[in-house]
Design a protein around this nucleic acid. Structure first.
Ligand SMILES: [Mn+2]
Ligand SMILES: [Mn+2]
Ligand SMILES: [Zn+2]
Ligand SMILES: [Zn+2]
Lengths: 168, 168
DNA sequence: GCGATATTGCAACATTGTAGCATTTGCATC
DNA sequence: GATGCAAATGCTACAATGTTGCAATATCGC
């Protein structure tokens, strides 16, 4: 529980810019133990530009020949979320799995696009769910989640004509 | 598959207003068979002012002493959605179950409020996810889902003071 | 009432997580 | 570099939420 409040860890060697900080350093700075799965998961998330599901993470680990346990992976993700290194995205659509993405320090919130055709989830960095909306009396707003459903560029090109849209 | 395009069914006896149309008539008008579970589910949804999960529906059926099978209930709900009599609401939050609500003929879309404290989902009829937003090129918008997270009036009153908010 | 077939009801399976607990590992300290 | 101990792991079960296959049943037009 007692974690050094240090911002500078001195364990990360080179980069002084804004490049993805060394995963091991980020983990250690939170007072967590630097383990195989945690490091690998954090690095995969750092390299990804879209939220990933537990399953996708597992596949990446397997592809990189990093031995891992299903439950350990779940726990590593839970830990990253607890430590505010990642956040959880609800999986609307037929996909009922959580997805995880790196949480930038600035707490930047953005909407997501779910392709109803291929199931992919894409970050819409430019689109903030600005819900300064007036909620009915008594409701306390904590955060707003905005999900756009439709067809992603890859899926939209098929049947390029303006008519005959596909449903799902 | 061949369903009469009739708007007026003549099978519903009395009400000529906008009161919830007779469930049996609505089902029959879609060319579906009028069965115990379908009628009961549709009537429960008509009487509810918030989206209900499969589980909640099952409980209501049990409370009304209406024998039902888990799978049949799932299938009844699927059918209602197919027939555009109901729509499915994704259950963000720790709740990973779908919820179902009646689909009004006018296709009115609205946002929903998820209470992170008690887990309830409440319709925000007045709040439309007006996402005339400019999506990046190539993305085809089909619909937008807006979910507000926070504390509902019932849960918000505890700790009425402005400080000391509860997390989850 | 009859017959065709849409629905049901049951059992088995699938997906996505969690809980308990003995074993191993990271890491601070010697 | 060796030691000790809490933190993590890696199993094995179990839970929640659906889905699939298929034989039995009920609905509805005739
Ligand atoms: Mn994102
Ligand atoms: Mn609603
Ligand atoms: Zn797609
Ligand atoms: Zn509440």
């Amino acid at each position: 529980m007692t974690q050094p409040e240090a911002r500078q860890t001195h364990t990360a060697p080179a980069e002084a810019h804004d490049v993805p900080a060394d995963a091991r350093a980020l983990i250690a700075a939170r007072g967590g133990r630097v383990t195989r799965t945690r490091v690998a998961v954090l690095e995969i998330l750092q390299a990804s530009d879209r939220p990933m599901s537990h399953d996708e993470l597992g596949a990446e680990l397997a592809a990189a020949d990093i031995a891992h346990d299903r439950v350990t992976l779940y726990r590593a993700l839970d830990w990253l979320v607890e430590q505010a290194l990642a956040r959880r995205i609800a999986g609307s659509g037929s996909d009922r799995a959580w997805r995880f993405e790196l949480l930038r320090a600035d707490g930047h919130r953005h909407a997501h696009f779910h392709c109803d055709c291929c199931g992919q989830v894409i970050c819409l960095e430019g689109l903030e769910p600005a819900v300064a909306v007036a909620l009915p009396a008594g409701f306390q707003l904590e955060r707003a989640e905005l999900v756009i459903h439709g067809a992603c560029p890859d899926c939209g090109v098929q049947r390029a004509g303006p008519a005959a849209r596909r449903r799902r």
